[in-house]
């Protein structure tokens, strides 16, 4: 739908890692099935469909049906990966997600594609920036927001093996692989991408690599920024947040989501109750105007420079 972003060397669309991984898993586990809403192409499931035509259920443009069918397939002993544009998967089928997946507790994997503002010019109906706030209270759904291709593949493998509901939130915006050594995907654990002592930038998904660039900018000014990749929003790594608050004294959160009720909200809930420190929340304040993804990121300060600016602001708010 939206024009693909200009191809940049070393940047990858995480949907490719998702598609590769689900195909591999399905080879070895006949219980794995995919459920879609006329979204084979946008979910990159063309390969899966070719290999396993009987294990792809396309219910058509019918998201409520799609999520309910996912719950039923789990009841029937299948491991369904329900994959659709994140906006329709979480928004249109929210009550099915709540009642049939979370409350009933079925072993269903929801995979939200092209989340955040990835659909750019197609506008707020197609953006999925409310999904964190909608799904956070459904606390038995593990909510994972991979930052790169490696993490996407690991999250999908983990989800397939895990017994219980999962929401994996993917983008279509190409991102580079994070340069972190000895990585291990641990749900519920923040990944330390960079050590630092003056401020902590807590980011997820497409925002993590921008935070890394921001830290480099800040370093040039003598500011030491810690970076946490908070790939799991639920359950939240509260210990890592407490450590960030007590050791760096200021926090910036960055998410490709609405700033109300998302990652920033979760961090602020925790710090305000336990270790009050300045928290600058970055994201979108509400419905956004028409614009490409790049334009929207720039307009709302979701850039390395913008993140560095918020970091200085958070540091400035520390109590002397």
């Amino acid at each position: 739908m939206a024009a693909p972003a200009a191809k940049q060397e070393g940047f990858y669309d995480c949907r490719d890692a998702w598609a590769r991984t689900i195909e591999e898993l399905a080879e070895n586990d006949p219980r794995i099935v995919a459920v879609v809403n006329d979204s084979v192409g946008s979910s990159k499931l063309g390969g899966f469909q070719k290999k396993f035509p009987d294990r792809l259920i396309n219910v058509g443009i019918a998201e409520q049906n799609m999520v309910g069918v996912g719950a039923g397939l789990a009841n029937g002993g299948r491991i369904p990966f329900v994959s659709a544009a994140a906006c329709f998967l979480t928004g249109r089928a929210l009550e099915q997600v709540k009642a049939d997946i979370a409350y009933a507790g079925f072993n269903v994997k929801l995979v939200g594609q092209s989340s955040g503002v990835a659909y750019g010019e197609l506008g707020p109906t197609h953006h999925s920036i409310e999904d964190f706030a909608w799904l956070r209270p459904l606390s038995n759904i593990t909510m994972v927001v991979p930052a790169d291709s490696w993490e996407t593949a690991e999250a999908v493998k983990w989800a397939a093996a895990h017994e219980g509901p999962v929401y994996i939130r993917l983008s279509r915006m190409p991102v580079p692989d994070l340069a972190v050594e000895n990585r291990k995907f641990e749900p519920g654990k923040a990944e330390l991408v960079r050590s630092g002592s003056d401020v902590t930038i807590i980011a997820c998904g497409t925002m993590v690599h921008l935070a890394v660039q921001a830290a480099a900018e800040l370093e040039a000014e003598g500011i030491s920024a810690r970076i946490l990749n908070m790939a799991t929003i639920t359950p939240l790594d509260e210990a890592a947040i407490s450590a960030a608050a007590s050791e760096t004294g200021a926090i910036v959160t960055v998410e490709e989501a609405n700033i109300h009720g998302g990652l920033g909200g979760a961090v602020a809930e925790h710090t305000s109750a336990n270790l009050p420190v300045p928290v600058e929340r970055m994201g979108f304040p509400g419905f956004v105007p028409t614009g490409s993804v790049e334009w929207l990121f720039d307009h709302f300060g979701l850039t390395a420079t913008g993140i560095a600016r918020s970091a200085r602001k958070a540091i400035g708010r520390k109590r002397g």
């Binding site: 659909y119 750019g120 010019e121 197609l122 506008g123 197609h126 105007p289 028409t290 614009g291 334009w295």
Partner: peptide, 8 residues
């Protein structure tokens, strides 16, 4: 950017 003629 900021057009009244959004994609929807």
């Amino acid at each position: 950017p900021q057009s009244k003629l959004n994609g929807h």
